[in-house]
Design a protein around this nucleic acid. Sequence first.
DNA 1: CGGTACGTTGAGTCATATCAACCATAGTGG
DNA 2: CCACTATGGTTGATATGACTCAACGTACCG
Lengths: 236, 236
Amino acid sequence: MKQQEVPVPLCERCAFENGTIFRHLSREETDLINFEKEFRLFKRGELLYSEGSRISGFYCIHKGIIKVFKTGLDGKEQIIRFAKPGDIIAYRSVLSNELACTSAKVIEDCQVCFIPSEILISLVKSNSTFAHEMLKLACHELGEANSFITDIAQKTVRERLAEILLLLVEDFALDENNILRISLTREELANIVGTATESVIRLLSEFKTDGLVELNGRKIKILNKRGLLKISNVFN
Amino acid sequence: MKQQEVPVPLCERCAFENGTIFRHLSREETDLINFEKEFRLFKRGELLYSEGSRISGFYCIHKGIIKVFKTGLDGKEQIIRFAKPGDIIAYRSVLSNELACTSAKVIEDCQVCFIPSEILISLVKSNSTFAHEMLKLACHELGEANSFITDIAQKTVRERLAEILLLLVEDFALDENNILRISLTREELANIVGTATESVIRLLSEFKTDGLVELNGRKIKILNKRGLLKISNVFN
DNA sequence: CGGTACGTTGAGTCATATCAACCATAGTGG
DNA sequence: CCACTATGGTTGATATGACTCAACGTACCG
């Protein structure tokens, strides 16, 4: 399919369907974004922006999945979070006016809207409800980052892998066959958990042996959530 | 010294001297805070608020040092950050309207102002510059959290300890004898780095052997910043 | 003077990283 | 159509960083 054949989504509609942050905007404001934004398509593996670069706008995901990661010294990626339809990325650098502290790469083919920095800044200035919602968003993410720090610092790889699997279930849900609706390489899984690829492989096959998951390439079928929860050492 | 003998700081003055976020407020706005705020003293070891509790306001630090931490399952603390004069804490929970995701405990005797939640919310609503500055603050912290995640996930304990020492030098500076102006127990150091107390002790004494630091109880004298930088594997 | 919190050291263990070899798959180009 | 290559997955052997446990020293405090 050629790029021009994919219809450009309207913000007010996408806000409703995907629950974007733009749901707190007036019709005039979403119209402004519709006018100023640039619709882009990206394929798996493509890079949206990379660490250290200056950012001239942020992205609102309409379709697809993106991984946001930092690159360690030896080139090893640490995945910080995923963005899926309705999420925005790169807003951090825009608002703090710093260079990008992460890179973003496509996991699953994407349709995104690119919105210039000025728009975000001016909305924050002119619409106080929107500003508050952005603050809620940033503060919420901060809370999650703090939890993640504690987990990585204190839990074993085994515990973290179980926890991450459950988080992925929360974020991306299971299909009708209980298969996780996000497909990651073993290396990517390792780069979330913060471990070596081989360790993920070994632990996954242990989980399989224990009847917690079923593996078929990148398809992970979740058989026993409760069991994973127990391993992960979280109670919620 | 009795509590009433310590003079209550004025926000407009403290904003100037300590560079608080309130420097972006008008005189009327700081006056409002001065009127509504409650001045409090805390001694080392005292708890300002704790994880899971509902927060009715936030704190602006006038004097002293506070550690902000999460408690892991086995009760082990993970220190997330420190707050020193000019910093505010607990704003995250206020703005996201969530329960506190951290606890805060005094490291060095403190003078703080407690400001009710409503004030912060209303300032965000009414003063767009202030809202933007709060966003910058939150986004900046988010960036730091992301770096920390990557470090903990990828670096060795040795590297992290060296890095943390340098970060502490940045944040709290050295006195005239090159001694770090923050005094932490070995356990607290371990709880920043994310390791066991014994590991910190062993590594510190290695650093001492290698002529990088000099140890005298909790006093840490920094002898060779460049050496620590090299160990920490950061170049900046 | 006993108690409590903190610091230190040694020994043993284990989880996890590293290294190496190998297989499967898919895309590429001649 | 077939080598060729790249990428990802898997497994085993080995090394080791870091944790745990335990004992003991030290210092301050009421």
